[in-house]
Nucleic acid binder design. Structure first.
Lengths: 209, 209, 209, 209
DNA sequence: GACTAACCGAGACGGTACGTCCTGTCTTGTC
DNA sequence: GACAAGACAGGACGTACCGTCTCGGTTAGTC
């Protein structure tokens, strides 16, 4: 099962690991993922190539770890809950817009999204470690609102979350139009209109036709 | 003045053009975009490398043309209009789901999406030639419904379209969950619930046709 | 039979061939054969590595061609014939001593001899292209002397030649003692004593015991 | 003072020493000297790499020790003396031919000869420990014959020895022609003819032993 | 009907990076 | 402190492609 002979991770050099992760992140910002090479990472990190190949299966995997490593300390698995659902969602979505426009985050993210297209395994890990926790956090906030009676009891919260996140992702990923706080607000408003309980107290009916 | 000296497209070999386009499409299905090489395309097509470099700036551009070429004959710039808005949207979105699960379409598409992440120019062309026409078609169908009074007059149709298309794109691109006709229906239902005009005058019921 | 697909030698770049051969010869003098690398030759020659691998199977083969190339113009396939056999042989053997003490010749030669030990194919080529012609030239000179009656009719000239050349080669190759003109003379004298026709007119008898 | 800190040879593991020497000899026969690696020796011997680097300066040195170790028990520093000079020399030279055609001896020997070409220090040690004792043994046998009056008093015995050994070495090392007992005999005969004292007093007949 | 210009197939070229292998040093834990 | 084990920085290997550059050999279109 093991590859050739699995390396002994207890003897791994933390110094080298950090240098590699840092170098990868720096370089992806400087030259982009397409021109990012293992050799350049090794050279910048002052490390032998084998030390990279020993611990990671591909440059995408290196970048993924760089990415996780960078995001550490800000796990952000919970959305704020001030009681005002729309305001909470908008503030988080606006923050996401800001993040996606910051090259420091956007560039490595784009690289990982690109690589995931053709590397399903990387995609799966990206999903498990980054994406799902985030989607879960959104769903949790909506569930709270639902339990408080602000969202229709039969609304499909997963679909709602994907609608919010997916709209933004679509525009960002395909660059159809520039992102903006206004767009974030519009998304939240329109999604909530579809699932919110009407002021008259009765939930909006989905298929009354 | 343009490049070195622009090639004379009137003398271009249609035979070679077709062979290249076909070879590219075949190969991307066999080995994926990452391992697709110009040399392999040239060899498969029985063509000199220079013939590719003469007419295309990158392998992504070749694949893009292969892609357009394949989609020709089915311009699909209009959505059906049977009068039943929800049914029309669902049928188109279900067809999209089917297309995205067919490797013949999905693989080259993924390659182009991936490449667009790091190649904004390719992204722009993809946008102009493929994406925007499609989004416009969706918007047009919604506008018709709006003019017929089935959609709120103040609804932001662009946002609605991106919500529909974005939700599907998000799930497909990031492989968070498998696509399905049920998901297509759920998206349409929930989006329409947010913007439809109910028979009674309040914005609530989506499938009011 | 052919390797992958044999390169088209009519399109070979003479410029590159020369640069490679020159670089190899220079480098072997600077760093020795053990530390001679294909990469260094390529770099020094301003050539891609592939251009070396395309035309030569090993660095030994490159060096062999460098060697032949350098020796060209001085084919030296004939020994002088002044009528004085001993003097002729000594002058040639002394010249050989001088050559073997000149690093410019000695270093690449040592490299080829070393490599031949473990690469019989290279050894065979070295033999056919360099060694045998030389041994033949010696044998030819002895044969002339034999026909003139200065060497016993039943003497084995091949053995005599190998004895002359082998003695020198042994001392040079294994560095048992330094080479010298005196040693060259001693070899020639002793070998000739074994095969020469005695002044009394009768050839020395081999097995009169 | 000497190196870093000289290892304490009294604590050296004889078990490891033997395993390394054996592994080296095995491997050189299997893959040749060119592809012989320290790592492979260590792995085959079940030994850490450092244990090799601690006790030997190069893989040639390891092989040299393997070689000496193998030849132990057969010091053979004396040539037989039956009274028949030619017969004695021929029997020893024939045995040498047999040894040189036995891959078990020939392969490591070739490796050491090859390495000596470019590593004069190794050459010197090979000379001192193996070659000179052998040449001395030959010279001793000739000297006995000389003192018995069978060889001319003014003959250069060293040259004669090198002529015998060199001829064989030349043919073996450069593979100009296959070795044979006949060649061994021919060498001895021709050399003796050059230096022997004939019964009649003139230097001519070799097999007068 | 020859001339000429360009595209074409082919593939050699100078390069860059790949992923593997080995070097010689260093580190860790065992005996 | 020698040892087995093996991670490390470094560097060469031989291969695969890159994008550029000739090299004949077909086609057009022009004199």
């Amino acid at each position: 099962m093991a590859r050739k002979t699995a390396p002994d991770s207890s003897r791994r050099s933390e110094r080298s690991r950090r240098a590699i992760l840092d170098a990868a992140l720096e370089l992806v910002g400087e030259v982009g993922f397409g021109k990012l090479t293992i050799e350049a990472i090794a050279a910048r990190a002052g490390v032998g190539k084998q030390t990279i190949y020993r611990w990671w299966p591909s440059k995408a995997a290196v970048l993924f770890d760089s990415f996780l490593d960078q995001s550490d300390g800000a796990p952000e698995v919970t959305l704020p809950d001030t009681g005002d659902l729309a305001a909470d969602l908008k503030s988080v979505l606006r923050a996401t817009v800001d993040e996606m426009e910051n090259p420091k985050y956007a560039l490595p993210t784009r690289a990982l999204v690109a690589e995931s297209q053709n590397d399903p395994e990387l995609g799966a890990e990206l999903n498990a470690r980054v994406l799902e926790p985030q989607l879960d956090a959104w769903a949790a906030r909506l569930r709270t609102a639902q339990q408080a009676g602000h969202i229709a009891a039969d609304a499909d919260l997963r679909v709602a979350v994907e609608m919010i996140v997916g709209s933004l992702f679509h525009r960002w990923s395909l660059r159809t139009l520039p992102l903006s706080h206004g767009y974030a607000d519009a998304i939240v408003d329109q999604v909530l209109r579809g699932i919110a309980v009407s002021p008259s107290g009765s939930p909006a009916e989905p298929s009354a036709g």
